[in-house]
């Protein structure tokens, strides 16, 4: 098992803030909008350095999405910022008609996704956002795994023509990917080559997949670990290549089982090469208040759950 280390834990939302700040300095067409959550989204630096290109819209997310769509007409590249719940479910029709169907170059940037929002509870812990967004035709859906990758993704999507949903979160997680990485939209990242089982993870579950891989190696199981930061378009080739070798797969994500990364992988495999699959995901449930760690344990999104799923799926081969 390849060894991964990190010097510090950082929140992915700060990666977004840093990426946005850099874009403010390098791309004059980038503009940003926020619905009363500048601090939570780490948009302060962009706002301070580019006051003319920053729009505080207040607690009015539908209006924010519409304004963002309009800003593209004349060449601006708008980045909207609010919590994942208010970035998707609350404004689904606005995104559908004014952004996706209209083909507008809007970047919907969503923090506090999933259970790791913690104590605020289920009203804010959206676990359906990946599904909502990936169902929209031509919507690109990205869920990076750490600070460095989120920063790189933020910078990369400015050069991508078309609507993007960028998902990140609040908790600090190991920052292990290279600071100078080149972020390639739609390209899977191979973290560890293995032969017994493929573990495909996204977002905060990527580090847990690495931890699971280390434990599995101690138990004599060789796990191939893939970081899927882009859920749509999915890197079909990388997944199929891995499954051809391991013949079974575990998917891991901080999202509902319905509509998430696991669904996308299952759809791909059922069409090409039906394969035993286990899902580490929330099983048709809302979240609740608690610390992020407590919630990840209770809802079975922890390292041990990936390990258990790996054992189970290997037996099904």
């Amino acid at each position: 098992m390849k060894k991964y280390t990190y010097t510090e834990k950082k929140d992915t939302r700060s990666g977004f803030g840093a990426g946005l700040q850099q874009l403010g300095q390098t791309n004059p067409n980038v503009v940003a909008l926020c619905a009363d959550l500048i601090g939570s989204l780490k948009m302060d630096a962009f706002k301070a350095e580019n006051p003319d290109r920053f729009f505080q819209v207040g607690i009015a997310e539908a209006n924010m999405i519409g304004i963002a769509a309009g800003l593209t007409i004349g060449g601006k590249i708008p980045f909207t910022g609010t919590f994942a719940n208010f970035s998707t479910g609350r404004v689904y029709d606005q995104i559908r008609q004014s952004v996706a169907y209209s083909g507008k170059n809007v970047k919907i940037c969503a923090s506090h996704a999933g259970l790791t929002l913690g104590e605020d509870g289920a009203t804010h812990q959206i676990l359906e956002d990946i599904g909502l967004m990936k169902m929209l035709p031509h919507m690109c859906v990205i869920n990076p795994c750490d600070y460095n990758q989120t920063k790189a993704a933020t910078i990369a999507i400015a050069d991508y023509e078309g609507p993007v949903y960028l998902r990140f979160g609040r908790p600090t997680v190991p920052n292990f990917t290279p600071a100078d990485q080149k972020f390639e939209i739609g390209k899977a990242v191979m973290l560890n080559e293995g032969t017994d089982v493929t573990i495909i993870a996204t977002g905060h579950l990527v580090w847990k997949a690495i931890e699971a891989g280390e434990k599995l190696a101690e138990q004599g199981i060789s796990a191939e670990i893939i970081n899927i930061h882009t859920i749509k378009p999915l890197d079909n080739e990388a997944i199929l290549k891995s499954i051809a070798k391991t013949k079974c797969v575990v998917t891991a994500e901080e999202h509902q089982m319905n509509g998430g990364l696991g669904d996308s992988v299952a759809q791909l495999l059922s069409r090409h090469t039906p394969t035993p699959q286990e899902f580490v995901a929330v099983d048709d449930s809302f979240g609740e208040s608690g610390t992020p760690d407590e919630l990840m344990t209770k809802y079975k999104l922890d390292t041990i759950d990936i390990i258990n799923a790996a054992h189970k799926v290997i037996k099904r081969k």
Partner: peptide, 19 residues
């Protein structure tokens, strides 16, 4: 812009005005 689902055009127009 696409329209049909009502209530969205004023926001879009404002965005275009800002640009």
């Amino acid at each position: 812009i696409a329209s049909g689902s009502l209530g969205q055009g004023m926001s879009v127009a404002i965005g275009a005005a800002l640009t």
